[in-house]
Nucleic acid binder design. Structure first.
Lengths: 134, 134
DNA sequence: TCTTAAATAGGATTTATTCCTATTTAAGTT
DNA sequence: AACTTAAATAGGAATAAATCCTATTTAAGA
């Protein structure tokens, strides 16, 4: 993935095999937790250390390349940072979907109501996905 | 707190000192993490065991008496379950505020956009609170 | 190819959470 | 007020999760 090499370079981070494998893995799953990343990578890189995984996850988050995704009643997951969006968690199949919906009116209502200056919002919804309803 | 005795009784849970202390503590703080609960209770009940604390938190969540509060870049916190609301986290003073704002239009937009049937929503916003702005 | 700062491996350590079971207790009953 | 019993606790052991440490390896620029 050339794309991730550029992303890493932009933050002066070396493009190690481990890092690229982590980013690749998270990208292909969309949303995934630490253990699943490890299980997915270790067959390809048997020497991959959990310390390396944890360290990289934390580093990549602080460089805003990854973002944590906190879902109700679920282990913490991670995703490639992208434009703001809402997460939908299907409580039947545990699939996580991204949805892009205008949130400005809500943010404005909250600002008005609270006096907070909002910088970020994290919105998760629980429910049943289209497939599980069928 | 008679209120919590009734709540526990309604779920056929015994009103132990430990449980009441836990509920009291969470109620008075509004939002608080496990370790802070422990530190707060142990001076009053030196025999309080961490196992008891963890077990009770989990039990009270499964009886819908408590709810987990997942905030970005923060340890998991807990609150007394109440009517749905939005959480505001001040990134300066780490205070957590509740705000009650109409979310129906957003939920409808998401339903329309995704085909999900939404059952619950968890909304957190980051920003600067009124006091920290001053 | 050489150099060097950055990154990794993997075991040790620390921290977080759950498990186990003998003892205690809440609360209903007599 | 004492009796009974199922539920709950204490606290140490076990397990799991995350971080730390440092000798070795590696990416990448010269």
């Amino acid at each position: 993935m050339e794309r991730f090499k550029d992303v890493l370079k932009a933050s002066n981070l070396k493009s190690t095999h481990q890092r690229l494998a982590i980013l690749d893995c998270i990208d292909s799953f969309g949303h995934i937790d630490i253990d699943a990343i490890y299980e997915h990578i270790v067959p390809k890189y048997p020497s991959m250390s959990k310390a390396t995984l944890y360290r990289n996850i934390n580093d990549l988050i602080s460089f805003h390349i990854l973002e944590e995704v906190k879902l109700p009643n679920q282990k913490q997951q991670y995703e490639i940072k992208k434009v703001p969006h809402i997460h939908l968690l299907c409580t039947h199949c545990s699939k996580v979907e991204d949805v892009f919906v205008e949130t400005k009116p809500l943010l404005e209502a909250v600002t008005l109501n609270s006096g907070f200056t909002i910088s970020n919002s994290f919105i998760v919804m629980n429910g049943t996905c289209k497939e599980c309803k069928a």
